[in-house]
């Protein structure tokens, strides 16, 4: 097993963990974190597999894509956090209505 695959497998595990968290946790902050973990998993798979070039220089294209992806993820996270604050302000709880337990 090459390190590239090992890292890719870690990425896959992160992806699954993120999905698991997104489903099971109700607090929006956790959901947002879960999405970020899920995204990190995807980015890790993307970057890790780029090292399969055989020499020391990995493929630059996936690296650039991951940078783009990270900026997109950061932007989305910022919007999500701002929305979460608003949800909290409007409903008194940072939880989606279908997940409320009363």
């Amino acid at each position: 097993m090459t390190p590239a695959f090992l890292y890719a497998l870690v990425g896959i595990v992160l992806f699954s963990i993120g999905l698991y968290g997104l489903i099971l946790y109700k607090h929006l902050l956790r959901k947002i974190l879960a999405i970020n973990i899920l995204g990190s998993g995807v980015f890790l798979v993307m970057v890790a597999l780029a090292a399969r070039t055989g020499d020391a220089v990995p493929d630059a294209v996936p690296h650039a894509m991951v940078i783009t992806g990270i900026v997109v993820a950061v932007s989305a996270t910022a919007l999500a956090l701002a929305l979460m604050l608003r949800v909290d302000a409007e409903t008194g709880q940072a939880v989606l209505p279908e997940d409320r337990e009363e």
Binding site: L22, I35, L38, G39, G69, L83, E90
Partner: peptide, 20 residues
């Protein structure tokens, strides 16, 4: 606001599946 929140999470999940 809650609808938007849910929509954002769903939309991100969809995008990530696509990106994978």
């Amino acid at each position: 606001i809650t609808a938007a929140m849910r929509y954002l999470l769903v939309s991100l999940l969809g995008s990530m599946l696509y990106l994978m």
